[in-house]
Design a protein around this nucleic acid. Structure first.
Length: 399
DNA sequence: AGGTATTCACATGAAACTATTCTCTGAGTTAGG
DNA sequence: TAACTCAGAGAATAGTTTCATGTGAATACCTGT
């Protein structure tokens, strides 16, 4: 028997998982623990829609992994099941963050039209036309209400401006046969404060806030899912507690907790360990962090990589603090060396700010008094990954 | 010494530009009747 | 005459550049003691 045979043969019997799906982030369980109140609240607000009545728009806030999308979809699916026979109600879900699908006004509308059964070209049409087509297709759909679930609306509004929401609500007054109910989901708690007062009043919305899960609630959730996901006796109590503790530290992110458990399981499995142990959780935590960073670096465009490489080099070679100006100078040299066009300092400034957003660096704006104002740049990724990161950059830039 | 005023080195904002992709329209061309 | 082709006008988008304005505090510069 060859080694390969051994590996392939043992894969079934050795697996710790019963159903890995359960731990994937897109899995939706039948019972959503610790969200009963919120779900009831959502349901009570949207209930009149079953009779074909227009309800308030609804906005839902909460950090990532607090069960917002899950809860909304749960309620909304129930609603559409109930009204299946009567054809009053239609539900559409759209994630506004998906690049190239729904991150501009045009594309959001185009996507909606596509879901409603129409078709529009990806580009080339004036936005007004798309609105027209949208209203037309709605009017002829035969339903009375459209519940529009916009996930991560904050992203869309940030990119497009809040006029987009205003336009959507205004459509209602132009539609006779159908009305739109907007259910917005946002990770940003200050989202509504930031939008225009006029827009806000036209929304006439209700708000629900999803608080983060605490460690105990996280444990419950993990326990429920672990039973489904793993074979018996694979997960111990300590492991669950540890996972929950990790995730609770990260603003109670249930998704993170489930990821941790899944990856820990995969690691244990690869070690042919019949049980998940505490140390696997630590490994999993490192691995998730590491994979995320490496993925980000790999997928950056060339100019971004050049800037990032400059930052790496400078931080390694100078003991002092480094600033935007240093980075730009180094970057320009680097561009000359690899025969790439160099961008303006203005642009580099933005790129540095974006790296800060991505969590690769810490860039703090400081004033050096007489010596001007600039950003002080530090690395935000653990030392264990910098070496690997640099290798990736060197590789991808052909240095 | 204490108080102002300057000044630096960028940050931050807005607008305008460029290149690319795609639609739509109408003029000109073609082929069949 | 209908069908087809093709160029030109317009749109949307991403990624910049250009131009303009803002800004926190270390220092230069006064002032009066």
């Amino acid at each position: 028997m060859t080694n390969l045979d051994k590996i392939f043969d043992s894969v079934g019997s050795r697996s710790l998982f019963k159903n890995k799906q359960v731990l994937q982030s897109n899995y939706s369980p039948n019972d959503i623990s610790h969200r009963e109140k919120q779900i009831e609240h959502i349901a009570s607000i949207l209930a009149p829609s079953l009779l074909g009545q227009k309800t308030s728009n609804l906005f839902i806030y909460g950090k990532t992994g607090t069960g917002k999308t899950l809860s909304v979809m749960h309620v909304v699916n129930e609603l559409s099941n109930r009204s299946k026979t009567s054809k009053i109600l239609r539900v559409e879900y759209l994630n506004c963050k998906l690049k190239k699908v729904a991150d501009t006004e045009y594309r959001i509308l185009a996507e909606l039209i596509k879901k409603l059964g129409g078709s529009v070209p990806e580009t080339g049409l004036p936005t007004g036309q798309v609105y027209l087509k949208f209203t037309e297709i709605l009017e002829n759909s035969g339903e009375k209400l459209l519940i529009l679930v916009l996930d991560e609306v904050d992203q869309a509004v940030k990119k497009i401006s809040d006029e987009f929401l205003y336009n959507l609500t205004r459509l209602n007054s132009e539609l006779d046969r159908i009305q739109i109910i907007i259910v917005g989901i946002s990770n940003d708690l200050r989202f509504l404060d930031e939008i225009d007062q006029r827009v806000r009043s036209s929304l006439s919305e209700e708000e629900i806030v999803f608080p983060p899960y605490n460690a105990i609630q996280l444990q419950d959730i993990l326990r429920e899912r672990a039973i489904e996901a793993f074979k018996p006796n694979v997960v111990t109590e300590g492991v669950i507690a540890k996972c929950a503790a990790f995730a609770a530290r990260e603003h109670g992110d249930a998704r993170r907790a489930l990821d941790l458990l899944r990856v820990a399981g995969e690691i244990a499995e690869r070690e042919s360990n019949p049980k998940i142990e505490i140390k696997h959780i630590d490994h999993a935590n490192d691995k998730i962090e590491r994979d995320k960073i490496i993925y980000i670096i790999e997928t950056q465009p060339k100019q971004f990589q050049l800037v990032l490489y400059s930052i790496f080099e400078l931080i390694q070679n100078t003991k002092g603090r480094i600033f935007t100006g240093d980075v730009y100078a180094y970057y320009q040299d680097l561009c000359k060396k690899v025969k790439q066009e160099d961008l303006t300092q203005r642009r580099i400034s933005d790129i540095i700010a974006e790296f800060d957003m991505l969590g690769l660096i810490n860039a703090r704006v400081i004033s050096k008094g007489r010596h001007g104002r600039t950003r002080e740049i530090k690395l935000a990724i653990p030392a264990s990954i910098t070496k690997k990161s640099k290798e990736i950059l060197i590789d991808s830039l052909n240095l």
